[in-house]
Design a protein around this nucleic acid. Structure first.
Length: 553
RNA sequence: GCGCCAGUAGCUCAGCCGGAUAGAGCAGCUGACUUCUAAUCAGCAGGCCGCAGGUUCAAGUCCUGCCUGGCGUGCCA
């Protein structure tokens, strides 16, 4: 196998060896920066600044180190030659043998190409969305939903056994509020006196739930307390939320409710543990967390003077429960507006003496909406509420998913509704899908012309070394490394960046080089296989993004 | 006030563990459909990388201070 990983490993091993012999020092492979895909193909197939990085330790000028490295690398059959550029960059040109092996690998592994077993045997939990069932999901939830789902998909692709989890608050004042709101609407339907709660939920979906109760139960529920309405409404809303997520191709493996943490005694035992660690104290009849010990600017209340826990308390209990379940990596996707909440949970876990290094918070930055020049608002408390469902129906699941992972979640973004809807060259989703469609079209044409080829055949592979073909092939070779990098760094946008670059290279190739050419049967076959490989990688990548890969556009 | 995140081309954004001449898409301007799909391609133009110091052989990237913007900062959730 000549995956990008084994190429890297072999070559880094050569570097480590050369360093070890003269110095007596211990150089491991990890001491060197991994080889990167150069921006320009003139800079080789892999580039490295290893010489500059190690020059100091070796006490030799970078250029001299580079020459030693070059000689070592050139002993490998994987390497054709190495060029030293600038202050000591190593630009590695792989041998033609490797090029063919790469193509062979893609066309043999097919859907498995890009997937790896690097993290096999490890378990990961990705918690995301976690919206409370007090209303339908709105556009503000989409970024977290898509980022979380794609991160989960990426981690699964590199070997993790991944569990997607949804945590929701179904206890506390807001749920009471929900029940009272529905109850009021229900009574209203029967012309009975009702008092709508002051900060009740005003959305039309509350009325719809009330109407549903009437359809299902008639007037038989007029004597029920708010608890019954809360339970009914929460169940309806969770179902609605699941359906909306399904429309975005997202499903969860587990749901954890706040109520269940009370029922199982998890909340209580967490408070006891905190007390035992002297992480809490009582003041003014309330229980306080000593978060200032961890750098918080004030201590925080965990149990109010009326005996009710605050929202952080079950959250701490939930994360304590998470840590106990034996995951190697716990990813938590939440809106950046909750960052101080995340901090406090972490403070509490640390005060409990728990190891929190497996816990990763992905704080997605806020999204603003615009349509052309008009700024759109989607605040939940105000009038105009745009639901997730409306966006998916209006701009499609493909485009919605893509737009929200295209950019780093660490940056605030503006979602242009009009651009998203445009079915033109403006829209990067179609740019990628078009690669797949074009490649399929070539395959169809090949059948028509009676051209066929398989990787095992004895063909003239020399065209693979031509600049354009080579550039494409090298980019395809880096694909598994991109997946691994995106998964390890929990940054899905690295994949979309790569794909847009790959797509650009392919479209340019398509324009410049006719693949199926009757006057050049020797070149047509290997080119045809190269295009098949591009199609395969695009299909695999779009699969991870859960964006469809159409055969025709 | 304090905390978190950001500030890169007209707009939306990439930029890897500090490395080569700072990139892409859109918008603007020139060109290319008798061909495997022009939802494409080739090219032009567009930058005190917020400001000022510092560290380094090397800074958009790291450190400090400041400016600007977003979001937090409840015995609300």
């Amino acid at each position: 196998m000549y995956t990008i990983f084994s190429i890297r490993k072999t070559l880094l091993g050569l570097l480590a060896n050369t360093c070890n012999s003269p110095t007596g020092e211990e150089f491991t492979i990890e001491a060197f920066p991994p080889f990167a895909l150069p921006r320009e193909s003139a800079r080789g197939d892999l580039s490295s600044n290893a010489a500059m990085m190690t020059a100091k330790r070796l006490r030799r000028p970078p250029k001299e180190v580079a020459q030693i490295f070059r000689d070592a690398l050139e002993t490998s059959e994987l390497v054709d030659h190495v060029e030293i550029a600038g202050p000591g960059f190593l630009n590695i040109f792989l041998s033609d043998l490797v090029l063919k092996k790469i193509l062979e690998e893609i066309l043999t592994e097919l859907g498995g190409y890009g997937r790896s077993t690097v993290h096999s045997g490890k378990r990961a939990l990705v918690e995301f969305v976690s919206a409370n069932p007090t209303g339908p999901l709105h556009v503000g939830h989409i970024r977290g939903a898509v980022v979380g789902d794609t991160v989960a998909e990426l981690m699964a692709a590199v070997g993790y056994e991944v569990q997607r989890e949804y945590y929701y608050n179904d206890a506390g004042a807001q749920m009471r509020n929900l029940g009272l709101s529905v109850q009021a609407r229900y009574r209203e339907l029967y012309g009975l006196p009702f008092t709508f709660p002051e900060d009740g939920y005003k959305g039309t979906y509350i009325v719809e739930i009330a109407e549903e109760i009437r359809r299902e139960h008639g007037d038989s529920r007029l004597e029920e307390g708010w608890e019954w309405f809360t339970e009914y409404a929460a169940e309806r809303l969770m179902k609605r939320i699941s359906e909306d997520l399904a429309a975005l191709r997202i499903s969860f493996d587990s749901f954890v409710s706040e109520k269940s943490l009370y029922d199982s005694g998890e909340v209580k035992s967490t408070l006891l543990d905190l007390a035992a660690k002297h992480a809490t104290y009582e003041k003014d009849n309330a229980v306080w967390l000593r978060s200032t010990l961890k750098g918080d600017d004030k201590d925080r209340v965990l149990v109010k003077s009326d005996g009710e826990p605050t929202y952080v308390t079950p959250d701490i209990a939930y994360h304590r429960f998470k840590l106990r379940r034996g995951f190697d990596r716990l990813v938590n996707v939440m809106g950046h507006d909750h960052h101080s909440q995340a901090e406090r949970v972490k403070y509490a876990l640390e005060l409990l003496g728990l190891e929190t290094s497996s816990l990763h918070y992905l704080l997605t930055q806020m999204v603003s909406l615009k349509a052309g020049d008009r700024l759109m608002k989607f605040s939940k408390r105000e009038g105009e509420l745009i639901t997730m469902r409306e966006m998916i129906e209006d701009v499609s699941a493909d485009v919605t998913r893509y737009f929200f992972i295209q950019r780093s979640y660490t940056a605030q973004m503006t979602f242009d509704w009009e651009l998203a809807k445009s079915r033109s060259m403006d829209n990067p989703v179609y740019y990628l899908q078009y690669v797949h469609a074009r490649a399929c079209s070539i395959a169809a044409k090949a059948v028509e012309k009676g051209i066929s080829a398989e990787i095992g055949e004895d063909l003239d592979w020399s065209i693979l070394a031509f600049p354009r073909e080579r550039e494409l092939l090298i980019k395809l070779a880096h694909y598994p490394a991109v997946i691994l990098d995106a998964a390890d760094r929990l940054e899905p946008h690295l994949l979309t960046n790569y794909l847009e670059d790959l797509a650009k290279t392919f479209h340019a190739y398509y324009q410049a080089q006719r693949v199926l050419n009757e006057s050049d049967p020797r070149g047509s076959k290997p080119r045809f296989l190269l295009v098949r490989a591009v199609r395969q990688v695009m299909e695999n990548a779009l699969g991870i993004l859960k964006v469809t890969a159409p055969e025709k556009m």
